[in-house]
Amino acid sequence: MTIQQISVFLENRAGQLAEITAILADHQINMRALHIAETSDYGVLRMIVDRPQRAASLLLEHGFVLSMTPVLAVVVPDEPGALGKILTLLAGENIDIEYVYSVFGQVQDRACMIFRVADLDKLASLLKDNGMPPALHGELGIENE
């Protein structure tokens, strides 16, 4: 149900993102989602890839510091207010969102969002009970390694 997100810690210097994408491309690893958060001292690249274990191993071999984090992918109707409905459900259950970002492209003509919350099982159950089951690995083109 959950998918693995790779978080890579980046120095604030030009070329780091290019280096990471080149490593992934050289090994035929495809990115599905990407988010960068920054501070004045460093950045955090969060990404979903089609082969997370392989990507993490390669990046570690190249000296990058990273972590793997379970997240939940949620398919959302591609229409105004759809994300708001999910956020209202979460608020009603007092589920605090650590962060959220979107997946490249669409899944079956619907948008897809990546959610990180403290209790992923509670979020998955809530969404399923309300007719919005989490996206599966195959729907996102991610190998279940």
Rank of each mutant, 00 (worst) to 15 (best):
N94H: 15
D109A: 13
I20H: 02
Q106K: 15
A124C: 04
I95S: 06
D41V: 15
L24K: 03
D41L: 14
I36L: 15
G92F: 09
F115V: 00
M68T: 12
L140G: 01
N30D: 13
L10N: 05
T2Y: 13
A22Q: 14
T88W: 09
A18K: 02
G105F: 01
L140D: 01
I29Q: 07
S57W: 08
Q53V: 11
Y99Q: 06
E61A: 11
D96T: 14
I114V: 14
I97H: 04
V107P: 00
G15Q: 07
A135K: 00
K122Y: 09
A25L: 09
L72Y: 03
L34F: 12
A82R: 01
G43T: 09
P70H: 04
D41F: 11
Q16Y: 10
D26T: 11
I3F: 08
T2I: 12
G105P: 09
G15V: 08
K122R: 15
R46Q: 10
T2K: 01
A56P: 04
L123I: 10
I20T: 07
L83R: 01
M113S: 10
R46S: 10
L87E: 07
H137I: 05
Q4L: 12
L89V: 07
F9I: 11
V107Y: 01
P77I: 04
R116P: 05
D96M: 15
I23E: 08
K85W: 10
V100F: 01
A124R: 04
E139G: 11
F64N: 02
D50R: 04
I6H: 01
L136W: 12
E143Q: 14
L24F: 09
V75S: 05
L59T: 00
V74F: 02
L17A: 02
V100W: 06
I29R: 07
L17H: 02
Q53P: 05
I29V: 12
Y42C: 14
A111D: 14
G131F: 06
G141N: 04
N94G: 13
Q28K: 13
G63W: 02
E145K: 08
N12C: 07
S7C: 10
D41G: 15
